[in-house]
Simulated assay, not measured.
Amino acid sequence: MKRKRTDSLAFKSRYLKQFLPDTLSKGVFGAAEKPRFWPVGQVTLTEDLRLFVVEGAAKSGAAAWMCFYDKNGTFLKRHLAAQYAAGGNKKTGFSIDKKGNIRITTETGAAIAREDVFAANPDGSLALILTNSNEPAVTGLFNPIDTLPRKHKLSGNYTAGEGNIVSIRDGETAKEFLFFIHFTRDKGACTGEIDGTGRFTTATTGQWRDKQSGCIVDFKFSGSKVTINETGCGAYRGIKCAFEGTFTKKRK
Protein backbone atom coordinates (compact mmCIF):
# COMPACT_ATOMS: atom_id res chain seq x y z
CA MET A 1 0.00 0.00 0.00
CA LYS A 2 3.05 2.27 0.10
CA ARG A 3 3.38 2.14 -3.68
CA LYS A 4 1.82 4.81 -5.84
CA ARG A 5 -1.20 3.71 -7.86
CA THR A 6 -1.73 4.61 -11.52
CA ASP A 7 -4.41 7.28 -11.75
CA SER A 8 -5.83 5.80 -14.96
CA LEU A 9 -6.79 2.60 -13.08
CA ALA A 10 -8.74 4.44 -10.35
CA PHE A 11 -12.50 4.08 -10.08
CA LYS A 12 -14.49 6.65 -12.02
CA SER A 13 -16.80 8.72 -9.80
CA ARG A 14 -19.93 7.27 -11.42
CA TYR A 15 -18.86 3.75 -10.48
CA LEU A 16 -18.14 4.77 -6.90
CA LYS A 17 -21.64 6.16 -6.48
CA GLN A 18 -23.20 3.09 -8.09
CA PHE A 19 -21.35 0.25 -6.38
CA LEU A 20 -19.63 1.56 -3.21
CA PRO A 21 -21.20 3.10 -0.07
CA ASP A 22 -20.82 6.80 0.69
CA THR A 23 -19.39 5.87 4.11
CA LEU A 24 -16.54 3.77 2.67
CA SER A 25 -13.75 6.03 3.97
CA LYS A 26 -15.57 7.38 7.03
CA GLY A 27 -13.26 7.65 10.04
CA VAL A 28 -10.13 6.83 8.00
CA PHE A 29 -9.29 9.99 6.07
CA GLY A 30 -9.66 13.61 7.15
CA ALA A 31 -12.86 15.49 6.29
CA ALA A 32 -10.97 17.82 3.95
CA GLU A 33 -9.19 15.01 2.09
CA LYS A 34 -10.44 13.67 -1.22
CA PRO A 35 -9.13 10.10 -1.51
CA ARG A 36 -9.09 8.13 -4.74
CA PHE A 37 -10.10 4.47 -4.89
CA TRP A 38 -8.77 1.49 -6.85
CA PRO A 39 -10.07 -2.07 -7.39
CA VAL A 40 -7.73 -4.71 -5.96
CA GLY A 41 -9.53 -8.04 -6.47
CA GLN A 42 -12.63 -10.13 -5.94
CA VAL A 43 -13.46 -13.52 -4.43
CA THR A 44 -16.65 -15.58 -4.58
CA LEU A 45 -16.98 -16.94 -1.03
CA THR A 46 -20.29 -18.75 -1.49
CA GLU A 47 -23.01 -18.92 -4.12
CA ASP A 48 -24.73 -15.98 -2.41
CA LEU A 49 -21.77 -13.96 -1.14
CA ARG A 50 -19.07 -12.08 -3.06
CA LEU A 51 -16.11 -10.15 -1.68
CA PHE A 52 -14.52 -7.17 -3.39
CA VAL A 53 -11.30 -5.58 -2.13
CA VAL A 54 -11.00 -1.82 -2.61
CA GLU A 55 -8.02 0.41 -1.81
CA GLY A 56 -8.19 4.12 -1.08
CA ALA A 57 -5.32 6.60 -0.79
CA ALA A 58 -4.83 10.24 0.19
CA LYS A 59 -1.92 12.38 1.40
CA SER A 60 -2.20 11.04 4.96
CA GLY A 61 -1.89 7.39 3.96
CA ALA A 62 -3.82 4.48 2.47
CA ALA A 63 -6.38 1.89 3.49
CA ALA A 64 -8.09 -1.21 2.09
CA TRP A 65 -11.60 -2.50 2.68
CA MET A 66 -13.39 -5.79 2.21
CA CYS A 67 -16.78 -5.00 0.64
CA PHE A 68 -19.43 -7.74 0.67
CA TYR A 69 -22.23 -8.06 -1.90
CA ASP A 70 -24.98 -10.61 -2.40
CA LYS A 71 -25.46 -12.59 -5.62
CA ASN A 72 -27.61 -9.78 -7.07
CA GLY A 73 -24.89 -7.17 -6.55
CA THR A 74 -26.55 -5.53 -3.54
CA PHE A 75 -24.04 -4.02 -1.10
CA LEU A 76 -24.14 -5.62 2.37
CA LYS A 77 -21.25 -4.48 4.59
CA ARG A 78 -17.68 -3.25 4.44
CA HIS A 79 -14.77 -3.92 6.83
CA LEU A 80 -11.43 -2.12 7.11
CA ALA A 81 -8.81 -4.77 6.35
CA ALA A 82 -5.55 -2.82 6.20
CA GLN A 83 -4.26 0.67 6.85
CA TYR A 84 -0.97 2.45 6.27
CA ALA A 85 0.10 5.80 7.70
CA ALA A 86 3.37 7.53 6.87
CA GLY A 87 6.02 6.74 9.48
CA GLY A 88 4.11 3.79 10.96
CA ASN A 89 5.65 0.38 11.66
CA LYS A 90 2.46 -1.70 11.66
CA LYS A 91 1.64 -3.99 8.74
CA THR A 92 -1.78 -5.54 8.21
CA GLY A 93 -2.79 -8.03 5.56
CA PHE A 94 -5.33 -10.77 5.00
CA SER A 95 -5.84 -14.02 3.15
CA ILE A 96 -8.71 -16.42 2.51
CA ASP A 97 -8.38 -20.18 2.92
CA LYS A 98 -10.22 -22.95 1.02
CA LYS A 99 -13.05 -22.95 3.56
CA GLY A 100 -13.69 -19.24 3.01
CA ASN A 101 -12.26 -18.20 6.38
CA ILE A 102 -10.67 -14.75 6.39
CA ARG A 103 -7.31 -14.43 8.17
CA ILE A 104 -6.23 -10.90 9.13
CA THR A 105 -2.58 -10.69 10.19
CA THR A 106 -1.05 -7.73 12.01
CA GLU A 107 2.71 -7.32 12.39
CA THR A 108 4.35 -4.69 14.57
CA GLY A 109 8.04 -4.17 13.99
CA ALA A 110 9.91 -7.37 13.17
CA ALA A 111 8.81 -9.78 15.88
CA ILE A 112 5.26 -9.29 17.12
CA ALA A 113 2.44 -10.81 15.07
CA ARG A 114 -1.27 -11.42 15.60
CA GLU A 115 -3.64 -13.47 13.44
CA ASP A 116 -7.43 -13.20 13.74
CA VAL A 117 -9.57 -15.69 11.81
CA PHE A 118 -13.11 -14.70 10.85
CA ALA A 119 -16.04 -16.45 9.22
CA ALA A 120 -18.18 -14.38 6.88
CA ASN A 121 -21.91 -14.47 7.63
CA PRO A 122 -24.55 -14.35 4.85
CA ASP A 123 -25.31 -10.71 5.72
CA GLY A 124 -21.66 -9.68 5.22
CA SER A 125 -20.80 -9.44 8.92
CA LEU A 126 -17.73 -11.19 10.35
CA ALA A 127 -17.63 -13.60 13.29
CA LEU A 128 -14.30 -14.04 15.11
CA ILE A 129 -13.56 -17.76 15.44
CA LEU A 130 -9.86 -17.91 16.34
CA THR A 131 -6.96 -15.71 17.47
CA ASN A 132 -3.28 -16.67 17.32
CA SER A 133 -0.65 -14.31 18.69
CA ASN A 134 2.95 -14.18 19.83
CA GLU A 135 2.38 -10.78 21.45
CA PRO A 136 3.76 -10.46 24.99
CA ALA A 137 1.26 -11.49 27.63
CA VAL A 138 -0.39 -8.46 29.20
CA THR A 139 -2.28 -8.01 32.42
CA GLY A 140 -5.88 -7.06 31.91
CA LEU A 141 -8.51 -7.43 29.22
CA PHE A 142 -7.92 -6.95 25.48
CA ASN A 143 -10.70 -4.94 23.85
CA PRO A 144 -10.53 -5.49 20.04
CA ILE A 145 -12.67 -2.41 19.23
CA ASP A 146 -11.14 -0.05 21.78
CA THR A 147 -9.51 2.29 19.23
CA LEU A 148 -12.55 2.63 16.95
CA PRO A 149 -14.55 5.91 16.84
CA ARG A 150 -16.86 6.73 19.76
CA LYS A 151 -18.62 9.93 18.68
CA HIS A 152 -22.16 8.64 19.29
CA LYS A 153 -23.52 9.74 22.67
CA LEU A 154 -24.01 6.12 23.76
CA SER A 155 -20.57 4.92 22.63
CA GLY A 156 -18.02 4.18 25.35
CA ASN A 157 -16.86 1.51 27.78
CA TYR A 158 -19.32 0.28 30.39
CA THR A 159 -17.89 -1.81 33.23
CA ALA A 160 -19.04 -3.80 36.26
CA GLY A 161 -15.89 -4.72 38.12
CA GLU A 162 -12.62 -6.15 36.82
CA GLY A 163 -12.94 -8.33 33.74
CA ASN A 164 -16.52 -7.25 32.99
CA ILE A 165 -17.04 -4.84 30.10
CA VAL A 166 -19.61 -3.82 27.51
CA SER A 167 -17.77 -1.74 24.90
CA ILE A 168 -19.88 0.26 22.42
CA ARG A 169 -18.46 1.99 19.32
CA ASP A 170 -19.92 3.87 16.36
CA GLY A 171 -21.46 1.83 13.56
CA GLU A 172 -21.33 2.48 9.83
CA THR A 173 -24.71 4.23 10.05
CA ALA A 174 -26.60 6.03 12.81
CA LYS A 175 -28.83 2.97 13.20
CA GLU A 176 -25.93 0.59 13.93
CA PHE A 177 -23.37 0.16 16.70
CA LEU A 178 -20.35 -2.08 17.20
CA PHE A 179 -20.04 -3.93 20.50
CA PHE A 180 -17.70 -6.17 22.45
CA ILE A 181 -18.78 -7.92 25.66
CA HIS A 182 -16.60 -9.84 28.09
CA PHE A 183 -17.59 -11.01 31.54
CA THR A 184 -16.34 -13.34 34.23
CA ARG A 185 -18.30 -14.95 37.06
CA ASP A 186 -17.47 -17.07 40.12
CA LYS A 187 -13.81 -15.99 40.26
CA GLY A 188 -13.21 -16.92 36.63
CA ALA A 189 -14.99 -20.28 36.74
CA CYS A 190 -17.50 -19.11 34.12
CA THR A 191 -16.78 -16.58 31.37
CA GLY A 192 -18.35 -15.26 28.20
CA GLU A 193 -17.23 -13.14 25.25
CA ILE A 194 -19.02 -11.92 22.18
CA ASP A 195 -18.79 -9.12 19.59
CA GLY A 196 -20.73 -7.96 16.56
CA THR A 197 -22.83 -5.23 14.97
CA GLY A 198 -26.11 -4.36 16.68
CA ARG A 199 -28.99 -2.15 15.59
CA PHE A 200 -30.73 0.55 17.58
CA THR A 201 -34.42 -0.29 17.94
CA THR A 202 -35.21 3.00 19.71
CA ALA A 203 -33.13 5.96 20.90
CA THR A 204 -32.20 4.05 24.07
CA THR A 205 -32.45 0.36 23.14
CA GLY A 206 -30.63 -1.92 20.74
CA GLN A 207 -30.43 -5.56 19.74
CA TRP A 208 -28.03 -8.03 18.11
CA ARG A 209 -29.16 -11.27 16.48
CA ASP A 210 -26.83 -14.07 15.42
CA LYS A 211 -28.44 -15.90 12.49
CA GLN A 212 -26.17 -18.91 12.84
CA SER A 213 -26.63 -19.70 16.53
CA GLY A 214 -29.93 -17.93 17.23
CA CYS A 215 -28.28 -15.88 19.99
CA ILE A 216 -30.00 -12.55 20.80
CA VAL A 217 -28.52 -9.82 23.00
CA ASP A 218 -30.69 -6.86 24.07
CA PHE A 219 -29.20 -3.53 25.15
CA LYS A 220 -31.04 -0.92 27.22
CA PHE A 221 -29.31 2.42 27.85
CA SER A 222 -30.35 4.64 30.75
CA GLY A 223 -28.32 7.63 31.89
CA SER A 224 -24.71 6.45 32.23
CA LYS A 225 -25.60 2.75 32.36
CA VAL A 226 -26.39 -0.09 29.97
CA THR A 227 -28.29 -3.25 30.88
CA ILE A 228 -27.89 -6.36 28.75
CA ASN A 229 -29.96 -9.54 28.54
CA GLU A 230 -29.58 -12.56 26.31
CA THR A 231 -31.64 -15.29 24.70
CA GLY A 232 -29.96 -18.55 23.68
CA CYS A 233 -26.31 -17.47 23.69
CA GLY A 234 -24.83 -20.64 25.16
CA ALA A 235 -22.33 -20.96 22.29
CA TYR A 236 -20.50 -17.87 23.53
CA ARG A 237 -20.30 -18.51 27.29
CA GLY A 238 -20.07 -21.08 30.06
CA ILE A 239 -23.07 -23.19 31.05
CA LYS A 240 -23.65 -21.61 34.46
CA CYS A 241 -23.54 -17.90 33.47
CA ALA A 242 -25.20 -15.56 30.99
CA PHE A 243 -24.83 -12.22 29.20
CA GLU A 244 -26.87 -10.17 31.64
CA GLY A 245 -26.45 -7.36 34.15
CA THR A 246 -26.01 -3.60 34.38
CA PHE A 247 -22.74 -1.87 33.50
CA THR A 248 -21.69 1.73 34.28
CA LYS A 249 -20.06 4.00 31.69
CA LYS A 250 -16.42 4.94 32.39
CA ARG A 251 -15.05 8.40 31.76
CA LYS A 252 -13.10 8.54 28.51
Rank of each mutant, 00 (worst) to 15 (best):
Q212A: 01
P35T: 00
T173R: 01
P21Q: 08
T23G: 02
I96S: 02
T197G: 05
E47S: 07
F68A: 08
E244V: 14
W208A: 10
C233V: 15
G56F: 12
T231I: 09
K250M: 06
F243R: 04
R36Y: 02
E33A: 11
F219E: 02
L130E: 03
A127N: 07
H152E: 06
L49M: 05
R237C: 05
R5N: 11
Y84Q: 10
I194W: 05
N121A: 12
T105M: 11
I104M: 09
T248N: 10
T231Q: 12
K12I: 01
R50C: 03
M1P: 02
C67F: 04
G198R: 05
G87H: 03
T159N: 14
A32V: 08
H182G: 04
G93Y: 07
P136W: 10
G87F: 01
N143S: 02
R50H: 15
E107H: 07
L130M: 01
L154Q: 09
R50Y: 11
P39T: 15
T184K: 08
S8T: 15
L126Q: 09
D210E: 03
F52N: 13
V217S: 06
N143P: 07
V53G: 07
N143L: 08
Y236M: 01
R3T: 13
M1Y: 13
Y69G: 08
A85R: 10
K175N: 08
D116W: 00
K17C: 10
G214C: 00
E193W: 00
H182C: 04
A63S: 08
R209H: 07
A111G: 14
L45A: 14
T197H: 03
S13K: 15
N229I: 15
L24E: 02
F200D: 13
D170L: 01
N229F: 15
F29K: 13
V217G: 12
G223L: 12
E176R: 14
T227L: 06
P35M: 06
A110F: 11
N132R: 07
K240C: 01
S155D: 03
T204W: 03
L148I: 08
K240D: 14
A62C: 03
G140V: 05
I165C: 10
K4I: 15
R185D: 10
I168S: 05
I145S: 11
T197K: 11
G73M: 02
F177W: 06
K249R: 10
E115K: 06
V138N: 09
T246S: 14
S13Y: 10
N72Q: 09
L148K: 15
Q207S: 15
A58R: 00
G171N: 05
A203D: 14
L20E: 00
F200S: 09
R78P: 01
P149L: 00
W65A: 09
G196C: 06
